[in-house]
């Protein structure tokens, strides 16, 4: 680490110090933002947390903030069902499409296909929600009323996170060193054996990171989900039941909420934040192993 000390490569020490401090401030701001958000959520929900014991957020009879009932558990389960279902569908689809682009598609088709996936990633979530509300929900309604349901939410979320999974998986596949592929091919392995035995293990970390990124988006997605899941606060027993996610709960009620109701929505936000933190720490643990 020759350049970590003052030396001839940096004629002026003051430039070095300046950059060091700029970087310190920049990273401090980034870290500070997260802490500020957490602090803000805590401060806003504290008035309610002081009156109501934390247990009541999972033991109350229902979510009726105007009548003093604050059960968040159905919305927590709704969030996890919707995000989990979407990951369940999008992960295999996304990895398969990345494999297709990287190893099976003829180059011109792969280019077009990749552009399409990128386009899919760029569509605003409200557009997905609007499409689902006017097309998907009536279709599901024919199958099993009321149509606005967990299933609709899962399908919309799948569409939204599929490009994330596909693009990050594709990037991870491209990062696998060429020598591995040539070596495997020289051993006479078939294309699928190379993919299964060499490429996927080598790209595992990148693919996993993409899935976790997608999970974060699925948990936090609000507008599209709000439009199609029916927003009834209940534990879903089938995929046709309407559910409400934590993020949708905040968006739906925040413009009109006052006092304890408002504080209860900040508690929703806090729970959502903790959920994401839990997800990331789980991901970090997987990464270490």
């Amino acid at each position: 680490m020759i350049w970590s000390k003052r030396n001839i490569l940096f004629p002026s020490a003051s430039v070095d110090t300046l950059i060091l401090w700029l970087l310190r401030i920049a990273s401090g701001i980034a870290a500070g933002m997260v802490l500020l958000i957490l602090f803000f959520l805590l401060a806003e929900s504290l008035p309610l947390l002081r009156e109501v014991s934390a247990v009541r957020f999972v033991t109350d009879s229902s979510w009726q903030p105007s009548e003093g009932a604050y059960n968040l558990a159905p919305m927590l389960s709704g969030t996890l069902y919707a995000a989990g279902g979407a990951l369940f569908l999008a992960t295999p689809l996304g990895i398969a499409s990345a494999l297709f682009v990287a190893y099976y598609a003829p180059p011109p088709a792969a280019g077009v296909y990749r552009r399409l996936i990128e386009l899919l990633a760029g569509i605003p979530s409200v557009v997905y929600g609007f499409w689902a509300l006017t097309t998907l929900v009536p279709l599901i309604n024919e199958l099993h009323p009321p149509g606005a349901s967990l299933l609709a939410g899962i399908l919309v979320l799948t569409l939204m996170i599929l490009p994330t999974v596909a693009l990050t998986a594709h990037a991870a596949l491209l990062a696998v060193p060429d020598e591995y592929l040539r070596g495997a091919a020289a051993l006479g392995m078939s294309r699928w054996s190379i993919i299964r035995g060499v490429v996927l293990p080598a790209a595992r970390m990148g693919v996993t990171a993409g899935v976790i990124l997608a999970a974060g988006r699925a948990i936090g997605e609000t507008m599209a989900v709000l439009m199609v899941t029916g927003n009834v606060v209940q534990h879903a027993s089938t995929v046709y039941d309407p559910i409400r996610t934590l993020a949708a709960n905040i968006a739906l009620e925040m413009p009109y909420a006052l006092g304890d109701h408002r504080a209860a929505l900040f508690v929703s936000g806090l729970v959502l934040m903790l959920l994401v933190v839990a997800l990331w720490s789980a991901a970090a643990r997987i990464g270490r192993n």
Binding site: S62, Q64, S66, E67, A69, L133, T134, V137, P138, N141, P145, P146, G147, A148, L226, M227, G230, N231, V232, V233, P242, R244, A251, L252
Partner: peptide
């Protein structure tokens, strides 16, 4: 009271309500 109502869909604004009824 709101707790007595057994909804299948909960909506936000008027436009969303109208679209929901149009689609069902």
């Amino acid at each position: 009271k709101n707790s007595q109502i057994k909804p299948h869909v909960v909506i936000g604004d008027n436009a969303q309500g109208i679209k929901t009824v149009v689609g069902n």
